[in-house]
């Protein structure tokens, strides 16, 4: 699991949708409730835009 680029604290997610709207590679997307899912971890380029724009501190990018 530790090889994934993002460490996600699902408990804090409020399903605002900012992360998957801003993600340039669409590595993250929303589930049926709109909460963050790391669906395509191989696409992630570790730009960090989701981490810095998540209002709820859900995402931690492993650098």
């Amino acid at each position: 699991m530790s090889s994934l680029p993002l460490d996600i604290n699902y408990k804090y997610c409020k399903a605002c949708g900012i992360c998957y709207d801003l993600c340039p590679k669409k590595a993250v997307s929303g589930d049926d409730q709109g909460k963050i899912v790391l669906r395509n971890p191989q696409l992630c380029v570790k730009c960090g835009i989701c981490e810095s724009h998540c209002p709820d501190y859900v995402i931690f990018l492993r650098r």
């Binding site: 399903a15 605002c16 724009h53 209002p55 501190y57």
Partner: peptide, 27 residues
Amino acid sequence: MRPELQKLFRMEKLPHIWCPGCGHGII
């Protein structure tokens, strides 16, 4: 949240009270 930043926040108070998508969390 980055571990270096966690010492600046009262982690036990999170998640915060703001609405989904509120910009205040980012600021």
